[in-house]
Write a protein that binds this DNA or RNA. Sequence first.
DNA 1: GGTACTGGCCTTACGACGTAAGGTAGCCCG
DNA 2: CGGGCTACCTTACGTCGTAAGGCCAGTACC
Lengths: 230, 230
Amino acid sequence: MAADAEAGPVRAPLSRDRVLRAAIGIADDGGLAGLTMRRLAEVLGAEAMSLYYHVANKDEVLDGIADVVAREINEVVDALEVPSAGAQWKNAVRRRILAARQVLLRHPWAPAVFETRTAMSPEILVYHDRLLGLMRDGGFSYDLAHHALHALGSRALGFSPELFDPGDGSTGDVPAEFADRLPHLVGMLSEIAHDDPGSTLGWCDDQTEFEFGLDLLLDGLDRLRERSSS
Amino acid sequence: MAADAEAGPVRAPLSRDRVLRAAIGIADDGGLAGLTMRRLAEVLGAEAMSLYYHVANKDEVLDGIADVVAREINEVVDALEVPSAGAQWKNAVRRRILAARQVLLRHPWAPAVFETRTAMSPEILVYHDRLLGLMRDGGFSYDLAHHALHALGSRALGFSPELFDPGDGSTGDVPAEFADRLPHLVGMLSEIAHDDPGSTLGWCDDQTEFEFGLDLLLDGLDRLRERSSS
DNA sequence: GGTACTGGCCTTACGACGTAAGGTAGCCCG
DNA sequence: CGGGCTACCTTACGTCGTAAGGCCAGTACC
C-alpha cells in the first residue's frame, strides 16, 4: 500500500523484449499501418520517446519483430520430427512449410516486413538452412537445392524470393558466429561461389531462377492437363 | 510574343493523365517511398493541393499507376501472337509471363502497389482473362485453370496470389460493362460458383490453393531429384 | 458592357508521423 | 554528500496527406 498507491500500480519497466512483443500485438490486430511509435508507447503505458532508450529507431523494431516471428516459426517446425531420408524429403519439406504457414497466418503482416528487411534475420537463415538440410537428406545437390529454394520462394516463408540473394554474395554475409549453425547454407554458398567465381556480386541470376520456377509449374500443370484429358 | 514572356513558358495544364505519368516516373527512379503528393506536384511545376483537382487522393494515384502499368503489360503481351492450341498452351503462357516480367522489371515498385490495391484494376482482370484463355486453348477445365492461376501466383504478375480472390465472390465483382470483355473470367467464376454455391463469400480456399501450388513444385522437384540421382 | 458563375490553381493550416535535443528524478558508488 | 548513470519525459522540427477557403481568368447570359 505504498508510495505508488495514488499513482496506480507501478508499470513494469520497459525493455526491448516488451517493446517487440507489444509491437507484434499491435500488428496482429491492427495491421502494420497501426504500428506507430506513439501507439506502441501508449500500449506500454509510456511516451513515444521512451522507446528510443530500448530500440534505436522504428526500423529496429521491424527487424526485431521479424526475428521474433521467425523464431516462433523455427520453434514450431523444429518440433516436427518428420523422417526426411530419400524419397521422404518431400513429405518432410511439405509438413515443414505448411507448419510455417500456420504461424504466418497468425501474423499476416510478417511477410511484408520480411520483404522490407535488408539484413536477413538470423532466424530466417536458420529456417532456410534446415530446409536445405531436408533436401540434402533427399539427395539434392546444392545446386538443385538452391534452385528449389528460389522456386518455392514465397511459399517457403510467405514472401518473394527475389530479395533473398544477399547484396554481396559470398559466405562473408553469414556472420562467423552463425556459420557453424548454418552448415547447409554455408555449404551451398561456397559451392555456388566455386562454380561461378566471377559473380561474387549478385550470385543469383534472377531471370534464370524465375524461369526455373516457372517451368517447374508449367510442366506440372501440363501433366495434370494431359491426365485430365485422357 | 506575349503576355507570358516574363513568367516563362506557360506550363502545360495539369490532367489526371499527366499526374499519373509523372507519378510513374518518380516511382521508377526514386522508389515508392519517394512518391509524395508534394514531390509529384513539384515535378509537374505545381503545388500539392492542385493535384486534388485531378485525383481524389493519393490512393487514387496508386490505383491509377497500377492500372497504367497493367495496361502497358497488356499492350506488350497482346502483341505476342504465339500459337496456343493444345500442347502449345505452355509455350504461349510461358512467353506471355516472361514478357510481363520484362515490363515489371522496368517498374519494380508495381507488384507492391498491386498488392495494396483492394479494388482489382480492370487491366489486371483483362490480363488474367487472357491467361485463362490460353489455358482453355490448351484444354484446361475452368477448375484446373483456376488452380493454375493460384499456383502461378506471384509469377504471373509479380505479386502474391492470396489477395487475388475478390471480397465477395461471384461474378457481381466484374463490372457489367467489362463482363463481355472478360469471357473466360466470367466463365470460370460462374462455373466455380455453380460447383460450390454455398461459398459465395471467399470462394477461394487459400489452404487448398496453397497446397496445390506447393505440391506442384514439390512433385516437380522430386522428378528432377530422381533424374539427377539416376 | 456588366455581372454572376465556375473551373483550375494556390495559400494556409491541422493532425499524424519519426525522431533530435535536452531535461529530470531516482539510484549507485566513492 | 556529490557526481554520474539509467530510465523516462517534454518540447520541438520537418515530413506527410489533405480539409478549407481564397484568387483569378474565362465564359454565359442579360
